[in-house]
Amino acid sequence: MDTREPRLGVDFGRVIHGGVSAAGDADTVFLDGSFEEAMASPATEGVYEVLPGLIEAFGGQAWIISKCGDRIRERTLAWLDHHDFYERVGLPRENVRFCRKRPDKAWHCRELGITHMIDDRLDVHRAIREIVPYRYLFGPVPGPDWVRHVRGWADAAEISRDIPAGRRRPATRRSR
């Protein structure tokens, strides 16, 4: 039995931001468009309705863990500010981590004690498989049986049910 304090990790691209269409097409404006287009690009449908409740269920113990280079890191941080993301979902500003390679997310998960991870890439889930007991493959395509498929944020709302009995954090009041 895992006795660690429940901690949530969430990918940024195609999970918090943008998302993938039912046809599997990614929104590339954030990566290839102008800075202004990137800032105007949308959050993934449902993130603002579901993620605040998950962060509360994890007692605020949640982190964005994203793979990117310097240019996209700057855009990501600017997008989070531009969309008032931290306040809207209740995530502390300092709870954002970046790495250059997807498998390096495993290092962050180990250091932070992440117990539940939402990511759209199967290679990330392979890298964290021995570290993170609850893994959620986000998006339209299901994966192998060792990772739970969540099509979108409506499915992700159920993740708090995976917090072991007695480990769920009491809800905290957030200032708006």
Results as ranks from 00 to 15, higher is better:
residue 106 A to C: 09
residue 151 R to F: 10
residue 174 R to G: 09
residue 54 L to D: 01
residue 83 H to K: 14
residue 75 R to C: 01
residue 17 H to K: 12
residue 154 A to R: 14
residue 144 P to Y: 11
residue 148 R to N: 00
residue 80 L to P: 00
residue 65 I to G: 01
residue 77 L to S: 02
residue 65 I to A: 04
residue 173 R to I: 15
residue 140 P to N: 05
residue 164 P to D: 00
residue 94 E to Y: 09
residue 70 D to A: 13
residue 142 P to R: 11
residue 169 R to V: 06
residue 97 R to L: 12
residue 70 D to T: 15
residue 38 A to V: 01
residue 81 D to I: 07
residue 141 V to N: 05
residue 131 I to A: 00
residue 120 D to M: 10
residue 164 P to V: 09
residue 29 V to F: 03
residue 124 V to D: 03
residue 13 G to N: 13
residue 64 I to K: 05
residue 78 A to D: 12
residue 50 V to N: 01
residue 105 K to C: 03
residue 110 R to D: 11
residue 103 P to T: 12
residue 102 R to V: 04
residue 84 D to G: 12
residue 59 G to I: 15
residue 119 D to V: 13
residue 120 D to S: 03
residue 131 I to W: 07
residue 105 K to V: 13
residue 40 A to E: 15
residue 85 F to Y: 12
residue 82 H to L: 07
residue 73 R to A: 12
residue 17 H to F: 09
residue 65 I to L: 12
residue 53 G to E: 14
residue 49 E to T: 13
residue 80 L to F: 05
residue 114 I to W: 07
residue 65 I to N: 01
residue 58 F to K: 01
residue 147 V to I: 14
residue 30 F to P: 01
residue 46 G to I: 11
residue 162 D to Y: 07
residue 5 E to G: 01
residue 158 E to H: 09
residue 136 Y to C: 04
residue 43 A to G: 05
residue 164 P to E: 02
residue 21 S to A: 11
residue 54 L to G: 02
residue 146 W to Y: 10
residue 52 P to F: 05
residue 104 D to R: 14
residue 52 P to Y: 10
residue 56 E to G: 08
residue 80 L to V: 10
residue 81 D to R: 14
residue 137 L to A: 02
residue 72 I to M: 13
residue 106 A to G: 04
residue 131 I to F: 07
residue 69 G to S: 12
residue 29 V to N: 02
residue 145 D to G: 03
residue 80 L to N: 02
residue 115 T to A: 06
residue 74 E to F: 11
residue 90 G to K: 06
residue 117 M to N: 12
residue 103 P to N: 08
residue 61 Q to I: 04
residue 62 A to D: 08
residue 112 L to Q: 13
residue 24 G to D: 06
residue 32 D to C: 04
residue 19 G to L: 09
residue 139 G to Q: 08
residue 35 F to M: 10
residue 87 E to H: 14
residue 32 D to S: 06
residue 128 I to V: 15
residue 78 A to L: 14
residue 157 A to S: 06
residue 86 Y to Q: 04
residue 33 G to M: 07
residue 97 R to C: 07
residue 142 P to Q: 08
residue 145 D to F: 05
residue 21 S to H: 08
residue 126 R to F: 11
residue 147 V to K: 00
residue 99 C to I: 15
residue 83 H to T: 14
residue 76 T to Y: 05
residue 149 H to T: 11
residue 4 R to G: 00
residue 128 I to F: 05
residue 125 H to D: 06
residue 54 L to E: 04
residue 133 P to E: 07
residue 54 L to N: 04
residue 45 E to F: 10
residue 42 P to D: 08
residue 80 L to D: 01
residue 20 V to R: 05
residue 19 G to I: 13
residue 66 S to F: 10
residue 37 E to V: 05
residue 73 R to G: 02
residue 74 E to H: 10
residue 135 R to N: 09
residue 159 I to L: 04
residue 86 Y to F: 15
residue 106 A to P: 09
residue 150 V to N: 00
residue 9 G to M: 08
residue 74 E to M: 15
residue 136 Y to K: 03
residue 122 L to Q: 11
residue 101 K to I: 13
residue 150 V to E: 01
residue 137 L to I: 13
residue 119 D to Y: 08
residue 100 R to S: 04
residue 5 E to A: 05
residue 123 D to M: 07
residue 59 G to K: 11
residue 137 L to M: 05
residue 121 R to S: 08
residue 6 P to K: 06
residue 100 R to I: 14
residue 131 I to H: 03
residue 17 H to W: 15
residue 153 W to R: 00
residue 113 G to D: 08
residue 93 R to Y: 07
residue 36 E to S: 02
